[in-house]
Design a protein around this nucleic acid. Structure first.
Lengths: 196, 196
DNA sequence: AACGCTTCTTGCCATTTGGCAAGCAGAAAA
DNA sequence: TTTTCTGCTTGCCAAATGGCAAGAAGCGTT
């Protein structure tokens, strides 16, 4: 039974308080199942992000290449989060980022057209969408401030406290570039940290 | 004549292509004039941001305090931009940031209630609002990537190219914390840069 | 004009982080 | 099983950035 399996999605839709249980099920019905294997791409740079994914299980990461060709992790995603490239999705422009599964993943998706239809038809879903967007914005601002005011070790601790599970699945180099240090430095930071 | 003086606002409303000239004037009519003198606060931390400001002339900056009590500039604003703290405004929560005029400023404002009314009543204004939000998000992502991949000197050059006017009005220390360096270092970077 | 205040620069040295390369261990592939 | 590849660590040294304090320069106020 499909509805049964949408439990997490329905719960997520209700989580902000904008959408009541009945509407949640209604909205969830628009979503299709989505699975992706480890190392496969959800989004490739140069393409337009057309899929709005609710990630139910698994881990993913977004990354971009800097001018020297280094792979920089820009974000990590874990279960019960939405995954999409905001700018490409809403502005219908080519993405500058890649999004890749770092474990096998399962989730639920709708297309841009479907989402837009729902936004126009359901004010509460619109509010919900804006809430997520604003929350993501605020999170990024916090991370920016952390990048300016904290040392690499403090940022490491912060990630360890808030997203400990990432460390079980992502190789060190992915985490290092996310924290804004080299993998060499992160290895040393981790060594220092383990002494304490 | 008020309408005359709203030229910049009306032009701004049309700039994304979502709002036609007639609707622009209609929407602009909801805005009230706003003036603020140098060093005065548009928003103080601990209060809820209730004002959506279109800045017509002047320069402002947002800043927060880190755990050591240092004042960190999180953003600069110049004419023909909107100024508000996204998270506080939309989530109705206390702001963790301050926003301050760094020159005398003039602009146009609406309240949260007015903006919300317009969002619900006018789909095109809603689109416009989302467009700005997404654009701000994308800009912050770019800045984050720049913070990770570029040296302080490169970030300095980038700011100089994109927001040269800021340098005429903001003291060095404001710019330094925005770039993620100390004012001492920025002074040296600037010295090195001027040699070339 | 004189004073106080802020801003900016600079010297000295410490700390943080990076770059490179070697080595090791474990996992995946053959 | 053997081979190959990837991920992680570590030593050595360089580069970037910070912390502190002194001094110079500019600005506004009285």
């Amino acid at each position: 039974n499909i509805l049964m399996r949408q439990e997490k999605l329905i719960h997520f839709l209700q989580s902000t308080g904008f959408i009541n249980p009945q509407k949640s099920e209604e909205i969830a019905a628009y979503f299709s199942t989505y699975v992706i294997s480890r190392n496969e791409y959800f989004l490739k740079e140069g393409t337009i992000c057309n899929t709005y994914l609710f990630l139910e299980n698994g881990f993913m990461r977004a990354f971009a290449y800097d001018t020297a060709g280094n792979d920089i992790t820009t974000n990590f995603y874990e279960g019960s989060q939405v995954v999409f490239e905001v700018s490409s999705f809403f502005h219908r422009t080519k993405s500058q980022e890649n999004i890749q599964a770092i474990t096998d993943c399962e989730g639920w998706v709708i297309t841009y057209e479907e989402l837009n239809y729902l936004f126009h038809a359901l004010p509460e879903f619109r509010e919900f969408g804006r809430h997520l967007l604003v929350k993501g914005f605020a999170l990024l601002k916090t991370r920016m401030l952390s990048m300016i005011t904290e040392t690499a070790e403090e940022r490491y601790k912060r990630l360890l406290n808030h997203n400990a599970e990432i460390f079980q699945y992502a190789p060190l180099k992915y985490i290092a570039s996310y924290l804004g240090v080299t993998d060499t430095s992160l290895s040393r930071i981790r060594k220092e940290f383990s002494k304490k």
